[in-house]
Write a protein that binds this DNA or RNA. Sequence first.
DNA 1: CGGTTAATTGAGATAGATCAACATATGTGG
DNA 2: CCACATATGTTGATCTATCTCAATTAACCG
Lengths: 252, 252
Amino acid sequence: MRWTEAEAPQQSQSGSAVTGRNGDPCFSCSVRHMTICSPLEGEELLKLAGAVSTLHLDAHRSVFDEGEPATHLFNVTQGSVKLYKLMPDGRRQVVGFLFDGDFLGLAGASGEAYAYSAEAITAVEICRMPRRKLEQLLESHPKVERRLLGIAAAELAAAQEQMLLLGRKTAKERLASFLIQLSQRSEHRGGAANPVALPMSRADIADYLGLTTETVSRTITQLKQSRVISLMPGGFVRLNDAAALRQIADGY
Amino acid sequence: MRWTEAEAPQQSQSGSAVTGRNGDPCFSCSVRHMTICSPLEGEELLKLAGAVSTLHLDAHRSVFDEGEPATHLFNVTQGSVKLYKLMPDGRRQVVGFLFDGDFLGLAGASGEAYAYSAEAITAVEICRMPRRKLEQLLESHPKVERRLLGIAAAELAAAQEQMLLLGRKTAKERLASFLIQLSQRSEHRGGAANPVALPMSRADIADYLGLTTETVSRTITQLKQSRVISLMPGGFVRLNDAAALRQIADGY
DNA sequence: CGGTTAATTGAGATAGATCAACATATGTGG
DNA sequence: CCACATATGTTGATCTATCTCAATTAACCG
């Protein structure tokens, strides 16, 4: 179920909460330096803070569904989110995972409806802004628009890399690529490159890599047995030989 | 082989030719209304015309290769182009086809190197602009930047749709999706929706859909036998029952 | 600590790949 | 303009990576 802002309880039993216009969400934002907001300062930031709301969602809660009018744009400030598309018979394709600092809603920057569904993997904190507010922001702040264009270009390149993975790589190569990708993204946002967090389920990984959960599981076992990776408690993977993993990922 | 502009003959035997700064390429541009240039007029267009060159390439000629410095942006004005990524052992993934009016080089809008190779499928005419010129253009023309952002968002949505295709669809569904896509794109740029041109080889289609040429051929035969499509001379496909094809594409 | 869900492992089935032959264009030099 | 040469496309017969179906084990949670 989804609720409008007016109906939303500040702290609900349903695993959702909104906080709007009542703090300084932007000044204290822990991921501001990696968001589209980074070019803004002082007064501008204050103005922005008045336009955004902060969502708190439990794991498995929907952020929005494919086909809904794309009224908002988002920024994940804490936690992990998955983006996916569904076919009528239930086949699912995860088109992306989002982590701290990641922007969400580019497709909605021009289109009218969300092209995929978004769901929390872990408990998440998400910053939400009305699309029309962003449009105003773009008018007055070319830097923000440039930043958005850069994000779009990077996402496009990542999408093309994923097409190569889905179209041409073996199961082993897909898993290796996936782990390397998670490691690099963690590093990129200032986290550890090596013990990599795997907050998503095997089913989510399978739907991201175009495989089944069984094949994901078997392939992880295979990588484990060849000592390239180790599974650690708490949903972490240690990359024992990142170079070897990269070789596998690239199909050498 | 590739050549620098200085070395390039105006009309060469190698299947390549450049024309720069010597006409009114922009005013007479047949696809201007669908390009990023569409917001420009009069003097602005004249200035732009001074910055672009027009390339003429025969089929199978390279426009650029993956990894090259992304010094230019392009617009296909006539003909068809394929974009592809290669793996070390030769596995290929076609990440896109371009037709009249399509923009090329978004990835290069922020990145430093082309993320894929581009090659002419048919004889093509391509408009080329230095990346720094575009950046200047963006500075002074927010409309152009907005347009680029819209293109990026649309491409991103298309890429996600392709991930669903590659990750979850059957061969038959992939072919149906592909034909519907070509039909819609043709219609979108003012062409006929129904007899659809297939300028690319079976190998290109296979590499786009994550299949082999044999499977592409067999699946086309299958669609032909079920009367949903017909192959016409000259590399055209007639969609006899577009609705049925769409049903197949969507997995109903 | 039971109960439920997620992950792993096993055995067998299959869509699509591979290997191979043939057919049909496409192009070229005589 | 034709006959050959080459590249592209189609069809057939097998093979195999991954899926599907099924059972077991491990993790999580109240």
